[in-house]
């Protein structure tokens, strides 16, 4: 991320307001989180929290199955949970950035009156969160492989699928994040939970820590409309290869089809995010909510 700031000095970046805002957002996001780069905070955010939530699931699983971690369900739960860390980081991070800028740092006025695109800036903030989420993901997976013998090896991972699915998946996540961020522009800080709440609600429909089949039948289709469900399924397949569990509702759909659906959803989210952002910005300006402070 230290490379991001010099990027901002490149002539073509300086000439393009949207690109400039994106680079500033990414740089600023990292600066804010780079408290985080200190050892103690790194230990909290990148290690302790994600590992504790992973271990919580490990113990719940082990209590019931007497520690049968070699079963496909274990890998399913462990990997799904680790992948969802990235989702939470990006999506809730963007909506949180709106509240942070407005209420904590109180720079919303300055950001909106500067000659730059706040939309691109928000995406930049999201990119900083991708970095953070991926770090936690890697650490959690390392623990899974070393201590719980997850059947993953570097040479069996389908890297092509993993990278492609992740790029498309992250675009979709950024889209969801900006939509939530845009809606947050309208809300008082006591509704900060919108980002986290939505992401927690969608957790249930992403097939992350339990197969969608476990949900009541009426709720299962929700998962099929959530891009993250496809990203998690594809990444799980790429990581586990032949060991990927097939009992999942999506098990029968080929990876190519899943990738295609994910791409379509990502595109939709990207467009939708821009439209929702524009509408929400207009409304926030109309209602004078752009720089409101609502501390309680």
């Amino acid at each position: 991320m230290a490379l991001v700031k010099p990027l901002g000095d490149l002539p073509f970046v300086r000439a393009n307001p949207a690109l400039r805002a994106f680079v500033i957002g990414a740089w600023l996001g990292w600066q804010i989180e780079s408290n985080w780069a200190r050892p103690l905070l790194f230990a909290i955010y990148a290690v302790a929290r994600p590992l504790a939530s992973a271990l919580l699931l490990v113990i719940m699983y082990s209590v019931i199955t007497n520690g049968a971690t070699q079963e496909p369900l274990f890998a399913f739960i462990f990997i799904g949970n680790a992948l969802y860390i990235v989702v939470s980081s990006v999506v809730s991070g963007i909506s949180w950035a709106v509240i942070d800028d407005r209420e904590h740092y109180r720079v919303m006025k300055q950001l909106h009156t500067a000659p730059m695109s706040y939309y691109s800036y928000l995406i930049g903030r999201g990119v900083a969160r991708v970095g953070i989420g991926l770090t936690s993901f890697v650490i959690t997976m390392l623990v899974g492989v070393v201590f719980f013998q997850l059947p993953i090896a570097l040479n069996t991972i389908n890297w092509g699928l993993l990278i492609l699915a992740s790029i498309v998946g992250i675009i979709a996540m950024q889209g969801i994040g900006v939509i939530l961020g845009a809606i947050t522009m309208q809300l008082a800080s006591n509704l900060w939970f919108l980002g986290e709440g939505t992401i927690a609600a969608l957790y249930l429909f992403a097939g992350a820590i339990f197969p969608l089949d476990v949900l009541p039948e009426a709720l299962q289709p929700f998962g099929m409309f959530y891009p993250v469900t496809y990203w998690i399924e594809l990444s799980r397949r790429a990581l586990l290869g032949a060991n990927a569990p097939t009992f999942h509702a999506m098990g029968a759909i080929p990876s190519e089809t899943l990738l295609l659906i994910l791409t379509g959803m990502a595109l939709f989210m990207a467009i939708a995010s821009y439209i929702v952002y524009r509408l929400s910005l207009h409304r926030a300006k109309e209602m004078g909510r752009l720089d409101m402070e609502t501390s309680f």
Binding site: M60, T65, L73, F210, V214
Partner: peptide
């Protein structure tokens, strides 16, 4: 979420 994990197991 945790309830469904228990149900799955």
């Amino acid at each position: 979420g945790f309830v469904f994990v228990y149900k799955a197991t």
